[in-house]
């Protein structure tokens, strides 16, 4: 259980986090979504009690994170963004080391690692630095679980990992969630966003919104269309000058356009013909998380430009 109230963090003049408010409950995955430099890692440093120079109030498991840092640390499992285990030790040695540091008895690796250990066991005597990115992350997660923490903090655990290992890691997170753990995980893979129960969108230290991914997509008010039928580059040149186009980008052989919600897409045909594109195939498409995210950022930038 985590409760953050008005969390802010500044580095000199730079406001890395501005007034964050969120809660995270037991048995829930809260996804932190944001671009590079949005403040995700800064937030994780604070949540991991490694940084106490923040403003606001943070309580974890009902304890004030500033006052009870040492007690809270016992119930936190932290997987940093950078691989932070001993590359020259084997999988087994890494696990044994961390469990003994936490004063846990690690007779049974399977007990510590659970389902994760099944994937790692065949390589138990391999040095960690020789593992693939996916295996490294599984090992990090395993090491973060040795002391059976109730809160799990994962800073971009799936970055740079192949798609299959990413899914496996998410499967593990889902089963940990069912075991009643509070899980905070940051990612910038949009396709992963829907695995989280709720999402916190972070942009340049600002909390854009916090909601379930499905309702975020449902609340997307813009109209998204795909245009094909002419060379993509030509489509781009033609439609990026359209007065109602909020955003235009190429998507393989097609052009995607963001238009106001009440826009009548039939008028696009006319725009195409006046620019001599020939017959076009224009159809609305379902927005995805990425579209929602880009839209929120755009709206935020517009509103902050006005103030």
């Amino acid at each position: 259980m985590i409760r953050a109230e008005n969390i802010s963090r500044s580095f000199g003049r730079l406001r890395a986090l501005n007034n964050l408010n969120f809660t995270s409950a037991r048995g829930e995955i809260l996804g932190i979504m944001g671009a590079n430099g949005a403040g995700k890692s800064t937030l994780f440093q604070i949540l991991a009690t490694l940084d106490s120079c923040y403003e606001g109030m943070l309580s974890m498991e009902g304890l004030d994170a500033r006052k009870h840092r040492l007690r809270i640390r016992r119930s936190i499992g932290y997987v940093p963004g950078q691989f932070s285990l001993y590359g020259d030790l084997t999988i087994r040695e890494n696990l044994l080391f961390f469990s003994s540091v936490y004063g846990c008895r690690a007779e049974n690796m399977a007990e510590i690692g659970g389902a994760l250990w099944e994937g790692l066991a065949p390589f138990a005597h391999r040095q960690a630095r020789h593992l693939s990115g996916g295996m490294k992350q599984k090992l990090s997660l395993c090491c973060a679980l040795v002391h059976n923490p109730s809160i799990l903090l994962l800073d971009e655990p799936t970055t740079g990992i192949d798609p299959r290992s990413r899914l496996e890691i998410w499967d593990v997170l889902k089963s940990l969630k069912q075991a009643g753990k509070t899980i905070l995980v940051s990612t910038h893979y949009m396709d992963e966003a829907c695995f989280a129960d709720r999402l916190l969108l972070l942009h340049r230290g600002e909390q854009l919104s916090t909601d379930a991914p499905q309702s975020m997509i449902a609340s997307y008010e813009k109209k998204l269309v795909s245009v094909t039928g002419a060379p993509a580059q030509q489509l781009y040149q033609v439609f990026s000058t359209h007065p109602d186009a909020e955003s235009c980008y190429l998507y393989g052989n097609s052009l995607h356009m963001v238009l106001p919600g009440d826009f009548d897409i039939r008028s696009l045909d006319v725009w195409g013909t006046t620019h001599h594109t020939g017959p076009l195939d224009i159809r609305p498409i379902r927005p995805e998380m990425e579209d929602v995210f880009m839209d929120r950022i755009r709206t935020h930038q517009q509103s902050s430009a006005w103030t």
């Binding site: 040492l70 640390r73 936190i76 691989f83 932070s84």
Partner: peptide
């Protein structure tokens, strides 16, 4: 440099 110091710092050690 390898970030392990940070993890150790989180342990009761």
């Amino acid at each position: 440099e390898h970030g392990t110091a940070r993890l150790l710092n989180l342990t009761p050690l």
